[in-house]
Structure formats: C-alpha cells, structure tokens
Design a binder for these strands. Structure first.
Lengths: 224, 224
DNA sequence: GTCTATATGGGGATAGAC
DNA sequence: GTCTATCCCCATATAGAC
C-alpha cells in the first residue's frame, strides 16, 4: 500500500522519510512505528511529525486530534489483516466441505495471518499495536478492536467450538482466551525469548513462531 | 504489609486514603493502582499525589523521580510474589525427591503464585503492573523484571526442561515463551473473556483461571 | 516532614499569514 | 496545503518558608 523504509528507524530524526510518499502516508507510517514501540501515551504528536518530516499543523490538518490519528494509523494496517483472516478461514473451510476442520488446521488459520503480516515494517508495526492494544488508556483499544476484529473473531470462535465439542462452553472460552494471550505476547517481541534461550531463539522469526505455536496451542485446546 | 482500601477507587478524589496508613504507603498504594490501570506514561505524579491525599512535594521527598516511584511501587508488591514462587517450587520439589516433578504439578507451581496473588487489591495491582511491564517505555520493564524475577524464573525454566526431555532446547524455550504470554494476558483482565463468553465467564475469577490454565498449558508444553 | 510557590519544559491544539 | 508563531494547559521537579 505504501512504500516505506524500516519503521524502526523512526527515532533517528527524519532520515526515514521517503520523498516520494504522500504526506498522509508518511505521517501514518511514523505514527504506526512510534505508537507500536511506545504506546499511545508514550508517543507525542510532535515526535510523529518530526519523524515524518512535516510540521505539527499539517498533522492536525490531515488527521485532527491525536486520538483520531491513532485510530487511523491502526485501522489502515488492520484492514489487511482482517481480510487475510477472513480468507484464511474461508480456505480452511473450503478444504473441509463437511464442516469439520481439524484443530491444527484451524489454529494455523487463526494465527498465521497475524504472524505473517509481520513480513513488512508496516505490518510489524500494526501487529505490535494490535498486541498492546489492551494496555492503552481510555479504552482506545476496545473501541478500535470492536471496529475491526469482532466479526471475524466471532466466526473463528464458532469454528473452534465446533472443532472442540468435548469441551464445555466455558472451558472453551477460557482456552481461546489463553490462546489470545500467547499469540499477542509473541507478536510484541518482548525480548524474553532471547533472554531465556541465551540468544539461540529469535522472537522476530515469525515463520518459526507459527510452526512452534500451532502444535502448542492445538494440544492445549484439545486437552481433556 | 499495608492496610488498604480497594485500589480501584483511586480515581475518586482522595476518598480512598485511609487515615491510619503512613504517607509512604498511601503513596505506594495509589501509585500501584494507577500505574496498573494506565501504565507508566499514562499516569501523572499529580494524580497519584491527589489520590493519596498528599501534595506533590511530599511525593518527591519520599521517592524522588517518577521513575523511582514506579520501581518502588512495583518492587514492594513483587517481593511477595517472588517469595511465593520460590516456596511453590521448593514444595513441588519436596513432593518429588527423585527430581521428577510431573508437568502438571510444575505448571501449577509456576502460575499459582501469580494468580492467587490477586486475592488482595494491592496484589491485583502488582500483577497488573507485572502483566503490562513489557509495554512500558524506556525499558523500565526490563530493568525491574531483571531485578526481581530472573533468578526464580531461571530455576523454573530448568525444572521445566527437566520435565520436558523430549523437546529440543529451542522448542522448549518457545513453549515457555508462549506460556508467559498466556498467563500474563490472563492477569490483565482485558475484558475479552467476558466479551467472548457473553458474560458467562469472569476473568477476575483467578482460582478458576488456575484450574483452566493448568491443563491447557501442560498439554501444550508436552505436545509431540 | 509538610506545604506553597514556582521554575522549566513538553504536550495538544489552533490562528492566521502565505 | 503549508508553515510560523503562539495559546494554554499539564507535567516533572525543586526552592525555600514553616
């Protein structure tokens, strides 16, 4: 959607602002990068403007209040993911027309769109914002989550419950809840994996993360 | 350690400040409650001082900079948990002098100290701070994590690896990483569980959470 | 130890020229 | 659409009287 340099360079003055990109997109790129790293309260609109190489008035001209900029930055990237999730579920269903999707397949369809969305810097930023949404103040997280994910997530939870008929409704909900925690934490790259493994594992290797997390979650979900 | 009222009332003026408590503890109580809810960047020292019914200068007299207050607030509660974790692991070991702690037992020893620490308002706040540490800016989280948990966590990870001999070192690390995400998300009470279950489940019921999460994690960890 | 007053800077947001 | 200058509030932190 937009050309952009590695968003993690956003801290270094405005060296990361490509000249070709439109002002709107440059602002969104840097808003994403900074919100993803430091959260809503930890990021100033001034820092975003400086990183994007525009002045503060322009930022307000295009996006209005900080809160609205946050929403715009998040929603731009989130749209991709929602589409990918929808497609992933449809495909899993198409492979199993009887309606019985194997659990491993379903878990993969659930986590893969998030994990592989990190292939681009913009995608990484969006996923980091996503992973930390529930820690943002003033319910911005809830507002924006409801706006994008609720519908798709509902479809997934129903598919999961069909794949887990031996579980009570409540236990199924708890386990899906634990699953959310696991994949979100993974998306954040907290550094604990590297610390724990003495540097042997790389939490930024999301392709590997998928292969590791799918059997873990599938086994946990279908535990007796 | 300190008498305190429900920390979640901290927003309402200073109605929550018990007269008997020392100034130090009143400040710490409200610092914990606000940092837990809104994070480091989202909380102002003014709000803490007002909640505790003291003035701003006193807050600096006792604790110095905001950063130091954050650390003090976190560490006060974290000490309890570290002790509880240490005891839990020792007890699990004592029950199995051969050195082979069953995985379910080990998982329980790992998560229970965190979950049951939420029985008091101060404990709840500490655990919420803990759960969101990795989203705090300026590496405060890492600094403080290293200070309290590293040693105990190392003991646990070694015990886990002994209980999971069929796993490669890397896969074991990944799975422990996923486990961390799951229990931390649970400690935060994001509201997603209630949303998903239509209000049937209560994410604040941490005793239930233990019973649900132990089989989930044990099964995930020992997946083939 | 407690408090008022204040220094100093950062932050969101806007007015108004160009 | 772009920019400078600015308003005004809030934030952290401290000085210094009591």
């Amino acid at each position: 959607m937009s050309v952009l340099t590695d968003a993690r360079e956003a801290g270094d003055a405005d060296a990361a602002a490509p000249v070709g990109a439109s002002v709107r997109n440059r602002i969104l790129d840097h808003a994403q990068a900074l919100f993803a790293e430091q959260g809503y309260a930890g990021t100033s609109t001034r820092a975003i403007a400086q990183g994007a190489g525009v002045n503060l008035a322009q930022l307000h001209y295009y996006f209005g209040a900080k809160r609205d900029l946050f929403k715009a930055a998040y929603l731009r990237g989130a749209a991709h993911v929602t589409e990918a999730r929808s497609r992933a579920l449809d495909q899993a269903r198409a492979e199993h027309p009887d309606g019985d999707i194997p659990l491993e397949r379903l878990v993969r369809a659930f986590v893969e769109p998030f994990m592989l969305n990190t292939a681009t810097p913009e995608g990484r930023a969006t996923m980091a914002m996503h992973a930390r949404l529930h820690t943002e103040p003033d319910d911005i997280g809830k507002e924006v989550l409801a706006q994008v994910y609720d519908e798709t997530t509902l479809a997934y939870t129903e598919a999961f419950r069909r794949a887990l008929p031996h579980l009570s409704f409540e236990t199924a909900c708890w386990r899906l809840y634990f699953m959310m925690g696991a994949y979100r934490y993974t998306l954040m790259r907290t550094g604990r994996l590297e610390a724990m493994s003495g540097g042997l594992c790389d939490s930024g290797d999301f392709a590997r993360a998928v292969e590791e997390i799918v059997p873990f979650l599938a086994a946990g979900l279908k535990a007796p």
